[in-house]
Design a protein around this nucleic acid. Structure first.
Lengths: 297, 297
DNA sequence: TAAAAATACTCCATAGGTATTTTAT
DNA sequence: ATAAAATACCTATGGAGTATTTTTA
């Protein structure tokens, strides 16, 4: 059996004649005659009654042809799907980002994607880096915005931007009074740096920052979000690092954000996808658009 | 595109590997690789992502494979239909009969068919001969019980039985008093023979009977059924012919049925089907069973 | 290095064509 | 006599095989 055979069946049934159907199918009459005969032999049942002026389906044939029509409809559906998604800039796109970036960054790139890739249906996924990598590897996510570097193999990426961390201090803290809003890391010894809980990539970055500068990070409490950290700082529990994108003035109640007068800690952000993807072209384009766009308003 | 290709798609998707799917499909790995590539080219879309350890469907591929599974399910359905109906003694059978036979004969052959052709689903159609011939020719009816001869070409038949006509007379009629329940056609001149309306094959038979024996048949009223004719006879409106099968004692209220002492009028009944049918075997068998069965209890 | 897919080539089964015969009206 | 399907015979496309190369972890 063969999809073409099914088309023959339907055509013969519709036109009531093998000769006419052969014209419709652009094959010879003998081809139809032979193919139908073969199919009947394969199925072990007569599908058509050959009459003098016309060919009519048998009862069995009629039931078979009904199904053929459904099948051919599904096949047309397959071609439609392929056609509509053959444009690499269309279709569903599941984009992941980690929690200390996602809520601040997603709102800014949604309009960008809408404008530059209007046929893309964007689905946003906020997960910690570990989950994102799993999802990416499993194919549940198409691409993800991650802090670099990423150890796991099998991914390709484009760098999007580097983002500085600010030091968040209580408004009434001694450091907050430094003019210029800058602080020297040497001044931080003895301060308590508040950290996010395990699993957040930013926790690692903060720990690295502490380690490289001999700062204590024996946080008695671990926050599960930047917002909690911010509240803790405002409540005078300690200091913390806040990525620039999350340090909007509107969220500065009771807090001052200081940059560093010596070396600025930062995170490098990239867009990652599976090396094996068939949508590489799209992802490269996306990354380019995302890198071009000014993130900080 | 090709049904086999669709099976390949599904197998690869299920097994996550072309090599494993090739074993499952009993073809070589290269065959799958090539066929899938061709299909992807034909559709203009990537269906699988080739990764180092496994092959996974792309978004498009997943949607296509969904449809493939439906299609393959329908195809299995086609094979099922063919298998279940490949037994010529099974399936639906639309059997027609004309109105002066159908209501008396159908009840007697239903048990016969049930017993001898248990897998046959019998559908009974009662129509006048003209309609039956049309339905038969159009394929709406598979076979029909008709009074012979049938002029129209394209049909084959087997004779089932010959059925005598009785003369129905009012119980108090002079003819009813003849001993032995027999009547000579010579005694019928001057009697009024009641007829069925146009379209009933039995009307033609009755007219022929009248013509061949010089009997008047200027019926002022034409009945639409044997039951009406019977009522009219009982009411003393005239005489009529009644086929033996319809002349049960239970239906004899106020009526006597007489046979003829000279030549007995009769109708010959046969089972007819299209010459082009693919179920000839079944119809011949059916006719044989019907002819064997004693009709009159 | 190993495991998988892709490629190169060869072969042949079969869909398809043309010409002709058979069948049924 | 005509119109349609079936058949005979030939061609060629493309599905499938084996052997090998490429790719990626």
């Amino acid at each position: 059996m063969n999809l073409r055979d099914l088309e023959y069946l339907v055509a013969i049934s519709r036109l009531g004649s093998m000769a006419r159907a052969s014209v419709y199918c652009s094959v010879s009459q003998s081809t139809l005659s032979i193919q139908i005969k073969k199919l009947e032999e394969e199925l072990g049942a007569a599908l058509f009654e050959r009459r003098s002026r016309r060919v009519t389906p048998t009862r069995t044939g009629a039931r078979v042809i009904e199904r053929c029509e459904r099948i051919l409809h599904e096949v047309r559906g397959i071609r439609e799907i392929a056609k509509s998604e053959s444009d690499p800039l269309s279709g569903d796109l599941r984009l992941g980002a980690f929690p200390t970036l996602a809520p601040y960054w997603f709102p800014r790139i949604i309009p960008l994607v809408k404008e530059r890739f209007p046929k893309l249906r964007l689905q946003l996924v906020e997960e910690k880096t570990g989950q994102l990598l799993e999802g990416l590897a499993a194919g549940a996510i198409d691409c993800a915005v991650l802090a670099m570097p990423v150890e796991q193999r099998g991914f390709e990426h484009r760098r999007l931007f580097a983002e500085p961390f600010y030091l968040a201090v209580p408004r009434d803290h001694a450091l907050a009074r430094k003019r210029g809003g800058k602080v020297d890391t040497a001044r931080l010894s003895g301060e308590n740096l508040l950290l996010l809980e395990e699993g957040h990539c930013m926790r690692g970055q903060a720990l690295q920052f502490c380690a490289s500068r001999g700062i204590s990070s024996e946080g008695s409490y671990m926050a599960s979000s930047l917002e909690t950290l911010r509240n803790m700082v405002a409540a005078g529990q300690g200091l913390t690092l806040i990525p620039k994108i999350a340090a909007s003035p509107a969220a500065a109640t009771g807090i001052r954000y200081l940059s560093f007068s010596d070396s600025q800690p930062r995170r490098e952000i990239g867009l990652f996808w599976r090396t094996s993807t068939s949508r590489r072209e799209l992802f490269v384009g996306l990354a380019k658009a995302m890198a071009d766009r000014r993130i900080y308003s």
